[in-house]
Each structure stands twice: as structure tokens, then as C-alpha cells.
Design a binder for these strands. Structure first.
Length: 489
RNA sequence: GGGGGCAUAGCCAAGUGGUAAGGCAGGAGACUGCAAAUCUCCGAUUCCCCGGUUCAAAUCCGGGUGCCCCCUCCA
């Protein structure tokens, strides 16, 4: 069995073979740090996190690099609007990126290059392109000579003539740089500084790098001339990744990446979630219960589950119903994942190494090997979680489980292992134990005692009133056989 | 105009030639004073439409229809 991945470059699923046996070099296009991340970003970084985790689980040593674009017009605009500086804005939203990803349990990259720290590599690359005739200066700017690169269009599968011919029905925005370009398709490698903008010195004058060049330079600096996997959102295929290929391959004469992976867009009512459409929900607003159509706190793992329940290349529609569904699904998984903590000791589990159940492992792997089929992998995880949830309840109600302790331990071990490959973990620090209703445990117990008395006296009106009273304080009661009542917040 | 992708139960979603995974929601029963929780059971004669290939197709081929993404910053 081997892992196959859909490669945008060849438009086929291909067996994944790394350049160097056992090692994977992976680069992911990161965010431009000018605002909070939204659910679309969450999807992208979650899915690449899963690809990375899966490769590691498959035994590869993965080196994962993801950049921050911290030089950009949008950051500058934000700085102007808020009376701040590009650096300060970039630092702030780099920080919030980390906070959001931490909540989503996205593993930290091995390296986070930033445009502002890569100026040497960028300038070196531009100089090489200039020497080779792929770049030309024009009034302080430097442009890439697109028509000189034969392979231009190979990733996005388009021909310059055809793009020229149609140009879609959109209004063509005037390109202010057009007079400086030899050809309308040329793009900027270096932009001359405008008054009052931050700049860096260069052989072409003071200025700053264009967007595409930073990734070419960072990949080379951090991972080498050819890497195994380059990934990002499907909206980056053209022009961003196409231009990266043009820059890197013109300079080195080698392929930039063997596999190009792209994730599908998150949509809202069928339309792409994006800043420009204004239909986005930030990760923190969603998790903190500030999404207007779903004003409840959302478990980060439910968001993760929502993302993984769709195949990564398909569009994913973001709706309150889907989030509610994912929350319920996560509760089931969580029950399964907590099984060991709740019942392990009672079942007399030993500390010895427990084996993963191969039947489940193989089914999981088979699904994931098929272009990271997370919905298929989740089916296996859910089967285990449901089985354990059931056993847990049988155990609580009948005092003993239907399955022997050793098998349960293996099932639990398998569940935890496979769920972790998907990054689905119960993280204890996320359980806020603040008493919403302000009742202390003793007060709650006292109310329960009063209700018990009422029930024994068959005064059900009073007992139901007490139950409702507790309910409004956020306390749920569970009546069990033998007159025992348990409660939880 | 060009390029890419998608259409499977109420909703989400796997499945690429061998007779439809899984999740959510829903229904019935058990339990309960009633609830909640839990347990058991139940759902597509059918995979957008029309043709074709085949012993056999959701899966392959041809033709339609509808939707999304990209060609402008974008994950």
C-alpha cells in the first residue's frame, strides 16, 4: 500500500515518493499578517497539519516550513488606518495567528520565515534572474519577464494567449504599473518605495519585494532548490504558485516542488469566504460564541472535525447547522477519547505497552492513503469511539462491560492514536470550571436532597420545579436506578 | 472567452466495474413518576438527466443540465 496524493501539477493522483527516502520537505504558504484568521484559514492550516501528522505517522521525518508575509500593501493600509506601523501590525497578527492555531491544535512549524528576514535571499534571487535575462529593472521596480519562461502556465494549465483572448466579463482594473512593463503579464519582483513607506536598500534603489518572490527565496533558504510538497489554498494556484515556479525554476533550472497540493475553499451560502466579499467569520469569533447566527461557544475540536469531515479538495460550506452537527459529533468522539481516563483504573489496565488493533489501523491507513481521505479515516475513528462510548455506559449502569478489559484497552489505545493523527485530542486546559449560576457544590447538593425528598413524597410538581431551577443555573441532573441522582454543569 | 472541480438519503459525506461506509438530524421500543442520559432496532431497489459499453456501472464512454473556484489581493 502506498500513499497517493493529487498533484495539481499533473492533475492526477500519484504515488508519493520523497526525494530522499524517509524524509519529507514540505512548504506551506502562510498568511499575510494584517488581520485575524478566518475559518478559511483554519481549514487550510488544519488540513496541512493533518497531512504532516499523517506523514509522520507513516514513518517519515517531516521538515515543515511555513512563512509569514509581513511586507504587503494590506498591512501598510492597516497601519495607516490605525496610526501604527507595518512592523507593529505584522507582529500583532502573527501573535494572534499563533493563538488561533494553538487552540485548533495545529502543530508548530519547524521554521517560520518572514519576508522581512529574507531580504538577502530575495535580492540574491532577483539578481540571478536579472543575470539570466528573466528580470529587468524599470524605474526602480524590477519585473519578471514571463514570456521568457517556457513552462509558464504549467501548474494552472493555462496559456497566455487564451487568458489574453477572453479576460472574462469583469471590468479590467487599470494597471498603474503597465507603462513600466514590457508585457502586461510581467509581474513585480521588486517595487520602488513610495514616499513614507518602509523600504530596504537594493541595487535597484530603495524599495520592497513583490509578493511572489519571498516564497521562492524562503523555500530555497530553508529547504533547498527542490522540495517534496508545496501546499496552499486553491486560490493561490494562479498567479502566486505559477509565479513561484517561474522564479525558482528559471534561477535554478530544477523543479521547485514535486508535489503541489491545494485545498478547496470554505464557502458561505455557496460563495467563497473571503475578505473582499465580507462574508468571513474569524476563528476566534466562532470559538468564543461571537458568530451572530450561532451565538454559542464552539469547541475548537468541533471546528477541526467540521473541517475534516469533508475531503480537503472539495468546497466546504460553512453553516450553523454544520457547526452544530460537528459539535455533537465531537461530543461522541470525546466520550470515546475520555474512556481510558474514566474507566482505565477501574478496569485494572496495566501500564504495559498496548498494541494498536491492526484491523482498524489498516482501514484507517487505507482511507488516508487515498489522497488524505479524512472522512473515510473518521469513519474508523467514530466506530471505535461509539463502541467505547457504549461500553462506558454499560459499565456505569451495569457495573461491568461487555468486552474484556484488555480488548477495551487496545480499542482505546487505537482510538487515541488514530484521532491524534487527525489532531483530535481532548485538552484539559480547555475546561472552564467557572460556575455559571454561581451555585456552590454544597448548594447544589442541598437542592438535590430537597428534590429527592419531594420525589419520595411523590410531590413531582415540586421536584420538577427544583430540577428546572437547577437547569437555569446550568446544572443538568441525571436520575439513576436506586434513587441516585448525579449532576454536571 | 479560457482553465480547474463538483452533483450520492432531511443535512454533511465516503465509495472509481461486482451489487451503496461514516457523522448529524429523525422515528420506534426499553428504562423513567415525567424528563435527561443511555441501550436496541429502523432509513437510498438506488447514486442530477438521457443514451452507450459490459454478465455486471454510482463507478467506464458520449451528450445534456445545474453549481462552485481561478484568470484582481486572497488559505
Amino acid at each position: 500500500m502506498s500513499l497517493t496524493l493529487y498533484n495539481t501539477l499533473t492533475r492526477r493522483e500519484e504515488p508519493f515518493v520523497p526525494l530522499e527516502p524517509g524524509r519529507v520537505r514540505m512548504y506551506c504558504c502562510g498568511v499575510t499578517v494584517y488581520d485575524y484568521c478566518h475559518v478559511g484559514h483554519a481549514r487550510s492550516y488544519t488540513i496541512w497539519d493533518v497531512v504532516r501528522r499523517y506523514l509522520m505517522w507513516r514513518g517519515y521525518q517531516v521538515r515543515y516550513v511555513q512563512n509569514f508575509t509581513d511586507i504587503d500593501d494590506k498591512i501598510l493600509n492597516r497601519a495607516r488606518e490605525t496610526g501604527s506601523t507595518m512592523q507593529a501590525v505584522a507582529d500583532r497578527f502573527t501573535e494572534t495567528y499563533f493563538e488561533d492555531m494553538e487552540r485548533l491544535n495545529v502543530l508548530k512549524a519547524d521554521e517560520y520565515p518572514r519576508a522581512t528576514h529574507t531580504l538577502n535571499g530575495i535580492q540574491r534571487l532577483i539578481r540571478e534572474l536579472e543575470t539570466r535575462g528573466f528580470a529587468y529593472p524599470a524605474n526602480g521596480d524590477v519585473y519578471y519577464r514571463v514570456r521568457k519562461f517556457d513552462g509558464y502556465g504549467k501548474l494552472s494549465n493555462r496559456k497566455l494567449e487564451e487568458m489574453e483572448a477572453g479576460r472574462s466579463g469583469r471590468v479590467e482594473a487599470a494597471d498603474a504599473d503597465a507603462p513600466k512593463k514590457e508585457d502586461p503579464f510581467d509581474f513585480a519582483l521588486w517595487k520602488a518605495a513610495k514616499p513614507e513607506e518602509p523600504f530596504w536598500e537594493s541595487p535597484w534603489g530603495n524599495g520592497r519585494p513583490g509578493w511572489h518572490i519571498e516564497c521562492s527565496a524562503m523555500v530555497r533558504d530553508c529547504l533547498g532548490e527542490t522540495i517534496d510538497i508545496h501546499c496552499g489554498g486553491a486560490d493561490l494556484v494562479f498567479p502566486h504558485h505559477e509565479n513561484e515556479i517561474a522564479q525558482s525554476e528559471a534561477a535554478t533550472g530544477k523543479p521547485l516542488a514535486n508535489f503541489w497540493l491545494h485545498n478547496g475553499m470554505v464557502t458561505v451560502s455557496g460563495e467563497k469566504m473571503s475578505k473582499s466579499l465580507g462574508n468571513f467569520t474569524t476563528i476566534r469569533d466562532l470559538l468564543d460564541g461571537k458568530w451572530s447566527v450561532y451565538p454559542q461557544v464552539v469547541d475548537p475540536m468541533a471546528l477541526r472535525l467540521f473541517i475534516l469531515q469533508a475531503h480537503y479538495r472539495k468546497p466546504l460550506d460553512f453553516t450553523p447547522e454544520a457547526i452544530a452537527s460537528a459539535e455533537n459529533g465531537w461530543n461522541t468522539l470525546k466520550e470515546g477519547l475520555l474512556f481510558g481516563k474514566k474507566f482505565g483504573e477501574k478496569l485494572g489496565w496495566n501500564d504495559a505497552e498496548t498494541e494498536t488493533i491492526s484491523a482498524y489501523q489498516e482501514r484507517f491507513q487505507q482511507a488516508m492513503d487515498g489522497d488524505i481521505n479524512t472522512p473515510g479515516g473518521l469513519a474508523v475513528v467514530f466506530e471505535l469511539a461509539k463502541a467505547l462510548q457504549r461500553e462506558g455506559n454499560v459499565l456505569v449502569h451495569q457495573g461491568k462491560a461487555d468486552t474484556d478489559a484488555a480488548t477495551l484497552q487496545q480499542q482505546w489505545h487505537t482510538l487515541v492514536e488514530l484521532a491524534e493523527v487527525l489532531g483530535l485530542e481532548v485538552r484539559s486546559q480547555e475546561e472552564p470550571q467557572t460556575a455559571v449560576g454561581g451555585l456552590t457544590d454544597a448548594e447544589i447538593e442541598a437542592l438535590i436532597d430537597r428534590r429527592k425528598a419531594a420525589r419520595q413524597a411523590k410531590n413531582f410538581a415540586e421536584s420538577d420545579r427544583l430540577r428546572d431551577e437547577l437547569k437555569t443555573s446550568g446544572i443538568t441532573l441525571i436520575d439513576k436506578p436506586g434513587g441516585i441522582t448525579e449532576w454536571h454543569r
